[in-house]
Write a protein that binds this DNA or RNA. Sequence first.
DNA 1: TTGTAGGCGTTATCAG
DNA 2: CTGATAACGCCTACAA
Lengths: 347, 347
Amino acid sequence: MTDRPGRRGDGSRPRTVTNADVAAVAGVSTMTVSRVVNGTGRVSEATRERVRRAIEELDYQPNQLARSLTQGRTRTIGIVVPDITNPFFPEIVRGAEDAAWAAGYTVALANAVEDQARERAALRNLAGHRVDGVIVCSARLPDRELTDLLSAHPASVLINRQVPGGPAVSLMVDDLLGAHLAVGHLLERGRKRLALLGGPDRSASARYRREGFLAAMREAGVSVSDALLTHCEPVEDAGYEAASRWAAQARAGGPGFDGIVAYNDLAALGAVRALREAGLRVPEDVAVVGCDDIRMASAVAPSLTTLRIEKYGLGRLAVETIFALQRGRKPTDKTFAPELIVRESAP
Amino acid sequence: MTDRPGRRGDGSRPRTVTNADVAAVAGVSTMTVSRVVNGTGRVSEATRERVRRAIEELDYQPNQLARSLTQGRTRTIGIVVPDITNPFFPEIVRGAEDAAWAAGYTVALANAVEDQARERAALRNLAGHRVDGVIVCSARLPDRELTDLLSAHPASVLINRQVPGGPAVSLMVDDLLGAHLAVGHLLERGRKRLALLGGPDRSASARYRREGFLAAMREAGVSVSDALLTHCEPVEDAGYEAASRWAAQARAGGPGFDGIVAYNDLAALGAVRALREAGLRVPEDVAVVGCDDIRMASAVAPSLTTLRIEKYGLGRLAVETIFALQRGRKPTDKTFAPELIVRESAP
DNA sequence: TTGTAGGCGTTATCAG
DNA sequence: CTGATAACGCCTACAA
């Protein structure tokens, strides 16, 4: 085979094959190449075949950048998560990616690392890349800023966050209901001294769940000890530390507890570990309820009673909502009911 | 304020603000805007300020597509993983993203969903987007195809896979050593009848670990029962099923076992659950060794003895290797030694 | 210090 | 059915 455009003898970056290279080899214009690649317009079977061969021979890859530039759309959807190492989010991403893939779209993932500055930068960056829409999971930015950032995007969906008057469609989990389910279950089983292992205050769902917890307790006429209300980061270690403190506190004559409602399954798992180390049995001495139903929840011992959230489905729906938005529809916000899954940690 | 380009009265997609809009408002040429945005060339303080105000007023976001098109680089690195819901990979992604972020780069994630067709499509797609480099984790495609696909990229790094003569730099984990460590530990503690819960055959590391397992057993002069060698998908359920079969087999008079070496921690956790349900105690009756040291490994009961792999560091190094490649260096392949972390499941 | 011309790779539009 | 031509938004190179 002889030299072709794109061939390089030095160690330099390969000149990428273009439209024009293919056109030259096939003996047609670039427009014809474009038509063949995109299946638009009418091209005779003969030339179509010539072009096809040229494409194959040169291993031509259309430049999506140029294509997006002229078409004004990227067929890419951005998705921002607070922390991809939190097992809650990969499931959402997976759902979104499957739906996007089916429609010929690509997903660009940005990890905000639980950091507002990076969340902001991610949103700006995605706007710079002209993604056709963004999905933001558990956004940590304040309403005002989020609204500004989102309005730079042609379509946006928020998961687990609502911004009144903002441009985004919200897909919510009913956290108040979730908290009621958890508290109700524990009280029903005779637990009375409940502790709340709440999430970080910057998380909207953490605030709702706390509110729901307090409301449910109030409605049941059960008092809550301030010493048994805490915030923690949504990670295993933080749950461990908080529960360790409670156990030590109880040993030192502080308020005892026989049930924990945790912000998420990671925190719940940490709490279980702490309790075990403190010599408390789960669920005999303390029952624990998590949230999210991550895969691990059913795999560990004791398996975790938790609130199931349809993570994969949320991801899919978020992408479908972006598509609806593109078609000019304005889907309404939706709220999903979590489902209490009773397992060993709080039977 | 009067009508500006970009203003829309209908409900149509907003015309995005361009270079030229800013130039018009600031009363300069587009070049001056470009210079201010990029901090290149000299611009008088006065005009710089005017341009800045115009940018702010219009909320101008440079179009990265156009920029990439002229500059010939995207400042984006692609990363392909077999399954983002496997907790091994988010840590790598996180490491890669942190390193990329620090250098002003963006990461584009593609999930191959353990599917060769999608891995192929992802690689092609990233090439179409002209990413400056790709990182492929645990590639499942055959050597030949992988080589072709990777050579379409200006720089590429493979994690956990080596392709002789291919264009990519490989970052390897010493799976043979890992298998030896696991087997050695179990034998040392008096376990003799070891089972191998191997990974899928399309995974290179699964093949190495299997090989290492067999070699270590041979070297120790311990025989291996074929009935105690199996493959499974790298997920919890598959580990559960395989171990259940072994337990049933043993009860029915088949070969007994007192140790399991698992392909990864997920499979190991599944095995532990199966053993427990079959009435076998871990570690008293059967010791279990996992691999990866995912976060859960230390959080569950019994905590998992496993081989630690520096996931985050691998991700970081992969990105740094891409950068080195860009600078024209040719870094050599590197191999990392896994570290045996002894915990409760195989003390 | 600032501006003009040209091109990056592709597609829309309009002629032939 | 096919091809010229003009964008898309930005930047490199060269002038002024």
